[in-house]
Design a protein around this nucleic acid. Structure first.
Lengths: 170, 170
DNA sequence: ATAGTCATGTAATGAGTTACATGATTGC
DNA sequence: GCAATCATGTAACTCATTACATGACTAT
């Protein structure tokens, strides 16, 4: 149930509507925990019902602004300190590698090259973001940069792996 | 729909029952595409209905042995060469990093240290597996090792990241 | 006026998890 | 005889995706 905690976490930065949160998900959390519009609105409803957030203001067009409650903050901190992260890793990309013997070696090399190129593209994109958020001393920036660095290191590892793997197939 | 392709891929190595496949999932595919028993039996039923696999033998205790059909092989190859891998990355672990400012710095450093330790443990486990499957020239071994190498490189990157990240928090 | 954006919600479907249920066969 | 393992299946529930539906406000 991490969507719930993603929402609580974002609300620690101030009240926001479902619409606001959706934009934040799309730009800043999409690589870590993507969420769709319908999921978000449904989750906000459940959070409000559970008392972890409350509707703190209503605006034009039926806008509802949600704020995190004390209970919500407590739940967020509990999740962060006491709940072990789930380690279910599912990779469509890596699953294919197991079955590369089913296609011919040229195609298999193509596949691995494409994965390397994809990683390279991701890296360029992330480096662009890193340069944009270079400065900024607030928590958001500090921890956002740490998360971004994770992406950069993983991207580099994946690119190097793909280049190496391509050479393993003869 | 990758479970479907994972099953097809495993069946290229010979006929197997749901029970057989479950064990293979548990030992060799669990880190890439975990599957539960109920999911597997249901998927085998659907695959048989779609004509991608067929019941090639029946054994004691209602055992059904499935074989991949020509259609199934074609679908597997299509998936491998023409379908772009999905890149939805969801990380519970990384999501928490965004909100590390909500707990105190000591706890945040603890969190990152635990993630580094976890990566180290995973690495040791994977190195053990690597030493076991060192030899073996069959496709299964070759591509299995390539997949394992991916895990090793990612684990190393994660360990180094966690060690670095811990130092960023003061 | 009208296009763009703000804003919320519902419905259908698919994928995955956990728990329950049942029974046959094998080895000791 | 009995425990372990082999073997399949169903049900309830949660989570996520895609598509549909509706309408208010704002700036030009």
């Amino acid at each position: 149930m991490s969507l719930r905690h993603a929402v609580l976490g974002l609300l620690t930065k101030g009240p926001a509507s479902g619409y606001d949160l959706l934009k934040v998900f799309d730009v800043s959390l999409s690589n870590v925990w993507p969420a769709t519009q319908s999921q978000l609105y449904a989750e906000l409803g459940r959070l409000a019902e559970a008392g972890l957030v409350s509707v703190s203001a209503e605006g034009p067009r039926g806008r509802k602004e949600y704020s995190i409650t004390g209970e919500g903050l407590a739940e967020l901190r509990h999740w962060m300190t006491d709940v072990e992260p789930a380690r279910v890793m599912r990779s469509d990309m890596l699953l294919r590698v197991f079955f590369l013997g089913q296609i011919d070696p040229g195609q298999a090399r193509d596949y691995l090259r494409r994965q390397g190129e994809f990683a390279t593209g991701q890296l360029e994109r992330m480096e662009g973001i890193r340069d944009l958020v270079e400065k900024g001393q607030d928590d958001l920036s500090v921890y956002g940069r740490i998360a971004l660095d994770y992406g950069l290191r993983l991207g580099q590892a994946q690119r190097e792996w793909a280049e190496w793997a391509e050479k393993q197939i003869r």
